[in-house]
Design a binder for these strands. Structure first.
Lengths: 161, 161
DNA sequence: TGCAAAATATTTATGCTTGAAGTAATTTTC
DNA sequence: GAAAATTACTTCAAGCATAAATATTTTGCA
């Protein structure tokens, strides 16, 4: 993992702040990459599924009445075309359905089937255990601190969500 | 963004620790996704390049004598096949070269060309500014705290790097 | 009403990514 | 010194991801 490790070069001594931000970012990137890798492997071996599929199911599980494609795209922070492909496959597997929207023939509402809801419930439970295990090195107090700092950093950036 | 947002459901009151870890993880995931999205867009519009290409160049910039393909794969935490493709394209663009390894005809050493080194230097400088800007909401002290906590969490997990 | 502008969804092209399988070279084992 | 195991890299298929282009529908407004 890298994405610019010009960290070990001696600096003049002025812009220490940008260096410490860069350093923090690289750590965050490494952590999220290693956790995502571990989750992906487990999703595949335990459920024959993927993270993007799980993300779509998770979003729909919270939306009682379903979501539009564009809502999904926004919620998951991925492109429209991407959602189309993932939804296509989930529909093929009978985990979700597309339904037309009353009064707007461009849009589609996507929602879980019973099968999809059950499938997600099983995965979600195990998923939380995996996170707990993968972040075992994170003391309870540190977890809250991390949550607080990262939330603040996100609000400070330019693109909210 | 989601990946299991079963956070807002009332819990019995027992496993608060796993909930706080899950919450922290979801924040970390959202942050890294939004920053990567912003960086990707800027890499494309400013340099006509991509993050994976930048990552490879960054790793090679630090390795005076070049790196093997498998070293790159480990350093970037991506699969072997992935590295092959990215390196192929960078070679096509004249930014890096492949050279045989003395005494091991299976392996290849990859290193920057002069063109590649110059190109990376330009990008790295701007990249650091982007990070500084995207993490502008992160106070200097928080950046160090974040670095420390995330580093500890990574060492606690199962896959080191 | 009628038509331009905006919104929504899909399609297309390209590149990233993985996991598995394949090829070739090297090292280990006996 | 030959068979077996390991290591290094590539190739392949499938899925993920984006940006740009297209098609369609709805909305705004003159």
């Amino acid at each position: 993992m890298s994405q610019a490790d010009q960290l070990d070069r001696p600096t003049g001594g002025g812009e220490a702040v940008s260096k410490s931000r860069l350093r923090a970012w690289l750590q965050v990137l490494k952590l999220s990459r290693s956790i995502e890798t571990a989750l992906r492997e487990r999703m595949r071996s335990e459920f024959g599924s993927t993270l993007p599929r799980f993300d779509v199911l998770a979003a729909l599980d919270r939306a009682e009445t379903g979501m539009r494609m564009s809502d999904l795209s926004r919620a998951l922070m991925v492109s429209n075309g991407n959602v189309t492909g993932i939804v296509d496959r989930l529909v093929d597997d009978g985990l979700i359905v597309r339904a037309p929207v009353q009064g707007d023939r461009r849009a589609w509402i996507v929602r879980l089937t019973n099968k999809g809801r059950q499938h997600f419930a099983t995965m979600a439970q195990v998923h939380e255990q995996w996170i707990d295990e993968l972040l075992g090195g994170l003391a309870p107090g540190d977890a809250r601190t991390l949550d607080r700092i990262v939330s603040a950093a996100r609000r400070g950036g330019e693109d909210q969500t």
